[in-house]
Design a binder for these strands. Sequence first.
DNA 1: TCTAAAATCTGTAACGATACAGTAGACTTG
DNA 2: CAAGTCTACTGTATCGTTACAGATTTTAGA
Lengths: 342, 342
Amino acid sequence: MDEKNKSRQAAMPSTLNERPTLKTIAFMTGLGITTVSRALKDAPDIGAETKERVRLVAKQVGYQPNRAGVRLRTGKTNVISLVLSLEEEVMGLTSPIVVGISEILASTGYHLVITPYRFSKDALAPVRYVLDTGAADGVIISRTEPNDPRVALMMERNFPFATHGRTEMGLAHPYHDFDNEGFAYEAVRRLAELGRKRIVLLQPPQHLTFHRHMRKGFDRAVRDFGLEAVPFNSVDIDNSLVDIRAAFETLMSDSDAPDGIVSGSGAGSIAVIAGLEAVGKRLKHDVDMVSKVPSDFLSWLRPEVITMNEDIRHAGRELAKAVLGRIAGTPAEELQSLSKAI
Amino acid sequence: MDEKNKSRQAAMPSTLNERPTLKTIAFMTGLGITTVSRALKDAPDIGAETKERVRLVAKQVGYQPNRAGVRLRTGKTNVISLVLSLEEEVMGLTSPIVVGISEILASTGYHLVITPYRFSKDALAPVRYVLDTGAADGVIISRTEPNDPRVALMMERNFPFATHGRTEMGLAHPYHDFDNEGFAYEAVRRLAELGRKRIVLLQPPQHLTFHRHMRKGFDRAVRDFGLEAVPFNSVDIDNSLVDIRAAFETLMSDSDAPDGIVSGSGAGSIAVIAGLEAVGKRLKHDVDMVSKVPSDFLSWLRPEVITMNEDIRHAGRELAKAVLGRIAGTPAEELQSLSKAI
DNA sequence: TCTAAAATCTGTAACGATACAGTAGACTTG
DNA sequence: CAAGTCTACTGTATCGTTACAGATTTTAGA
């Protein structure tokens, strides 16, 4: 202060066409860096005219906050992490979910980072990584289990997340889920309507939560409509198409083979069809089938199959909204949604 | 120095179970922060024993460099950005590419960030964003055009990137591409082998580079085998399945309809089949078809279709290796690959 | 007119890492 | 043994941002 030049905070104009920072704006407006920072976030202790001036200059020079600076100082990453299994490349499932999430994040400052893991047993590792390194502000996981350690961990650390699928731990957390119970019930109902009696279900693996939902809807409908559920546990929708096909070849060549099939996965349905056609059965004649599908390709090639669409892209949008909501502090209870087949 | 306590760089042990930083390790080892930093990157001016000690402690406390710190100081983001069109949700195409990229990045320190754009006309915007904000160390783009402004921009700025598909600008840059010329040639050859004479091509849109490749292979084969190419430009593989189906319904009901079809897209093939079957034609009888497919589902439901597989997941791996190579300074010429149908 | 309270604005320190310019001591060398 | 050279280590400044604790000016109050 007693020096001759007052040595303002924003002294030098740096170089020329570098990326503008708060310092650039501070220099151009003649204000302090702090003032500029606070003006841009509309703090109450900055004059209205000053704010306007700062905003104008900021826009003019195309200022965009440096993410690393913000992140270092505040810990806010502006990142949502989608935790994906590299195995579960189940036909076209991850693609639409990524698109759906992106659609929502596009209008926010958030980036989408894919955090992969290789084997189901390592599912906890990526979540732990994000939590330990603070790699993201929120996480989206899928393939939930009734008692999911990932959910337990994130709840315990009070970390924002949303799950594709529900859990059964008595903890309220954001989720989006497809109404698999409703799907299975409706599927069986349609088969009953067609006069089918012996129904089989190609179901999700036991350890995933939605196995229970689908099973529940299936069993209830079978009871309600006085049908018979054909026991079938040799394969589930996580098995390879080759295995599913083989299992259905065996099943359908049996003397008391089912005459109605509910398939919990579009990809699986393909193998199912191949299996039953291999033993000479024909859809609509010997057997009817209802399939859950993530896209409409099946109805083009086997219109005989009754399809019920699960809108994965919509799920992506809902999940993105849910994590963002959680980050913003919305109670988990208000961030839970269920969608029906369309 | 003349003070009584020498005030080392690493003075306080911070709190307890916070995330460890260089400071933590410096305190534990009694070394300076700089020394620790340099020891961990194996700098030549640090003693062997010291390095060992630092590494041990670092591992013990689970040290992981703070990305924001590194990024702020060095500008290195450790991020690869995959630029995706939200429109081009062409059946199951993006999913395997994401998986392939992830597989490679998993063993590096790189994260994968999805950078979407909404409409084809905005394709340049996300690239500009990444360049302007320094959001990533490398970029992967797809749907390249012969003269691609995105490529021009990144070359001009000397920014590492890899393209899924080639360009024709006389600039050497990393790419991975499917050998569409080879595919089309081979496809036509097989149709010729089956005695087909009048061949039609469901091709990529004109503005994309691989349109030319596929066209070239197709035309060359038609010439080589003395066949006839049926003109057909009303739809391309970017059109909706509904439109493709309608176009093929018209085409195939013509008196001089083609008896051989080459389809440049698996999803498109579905619509093609629906179209030709709608007018009473049957695969293998009235017409044969060869399709490029990203997965094997088609061969399950229409084994009559000859399929040639494009391994998108492999493309993802190659692209990831290519960008990383470019970042590491490998000449572009050594980072170009072409893959054949499998 | 003098003081208290607003209203605005600002410098400093810190987040975690690294580039750079040292420093201290041991070891050569002539 | 003085001077130079290595070896091994370290402090300072800095990247861009924000929390915090002032500082200055204006307005109000009495």
